[in-house]
């Protein structure tokens, strides 16, 4: 469904970018959701990533690493987002909304756990947090290697160190 407005320059190029968007948007959202734990924020991150991608790769067919780039950009942008969370405070205003009464302890623990994980990701070195997010969002070792521009044999080592660091942070 290509709109008549706001096409990137050149019809063929525009169609190529739309195909690129449709192919990679689900992965980008999933990576962002893995960091933020929130669908709406993940969608925002994905929009920012693809706007940046459009500026960088107007014709993604000509950019060999465009797919890898948007994945890493999703991880970095999402990590930046949660790093700014504390400063911005919670956006969601719940006053006046019919929020269900406090549920079982497990629900609270789950929410608490997610917050702790986000804090831990904030504290980890950027590279460690990125490899964790990419791998645990479902990318294979080969895909993580391509996205991070490292040898595939090095991904296991990076992942092992990052997971050990994550455990220490919790």
């Amino acid at each position: 469904m290509t709109s008549a407005v706001a096409q990137p320059p050149g019809t063929t190029t525009a169609a190529a970018f739309e195909r690129f968007f449709r192919e990679h948007h689900p992965d980008v959202v999933r990576i962002a959701r893995g960091v933020t734990g929130d669908e709406a924020t993940a969608q925002d991150v994905a929009q920012d990533v693809f706007i940046a991608a459009l500026r960088r790769f107007p014709d993604p067919r000509a950019a060999q690493h465009a797919a890898a780039w948007v994945r890493v950009a999703a991880a970095h942008t999402a990590l930046n987002t949660i790093r700014g969370e504390r400063r911005r405070g919670h956006r969601q205003v719940l006053s006046g909304i019919d929020v269900p009464r406090a549920g079982p302890e497990e629900a609270a623990l789950d929410s608490e756990c997610r917050a702790e994980v986000r804090q831990a990701l904030r504290r980890l070195p950027r590279r460690s947090a990125t490899v964790l997010v990419l791998r645990h969002s479902g990318l294979s070792y080969a895909e993580v290697a391509e996205a991070m521009n490292v040898n595939v044999g090095h991904v296991g080592t990076m992942l092992r160190r990052a997971e050990s660091a994550l455990r220490k942070e919790l």
Binding site: R33, V117, V133, S137, L166, R167
Partner: peptide, 8 residues
């Protein structure tokens, strides 16, 4: 542990 905490 990481898988459980970070799975999407």
């Amino acid at each position: 542990l990481a898988s459980r905490l970070l799975a999407v």
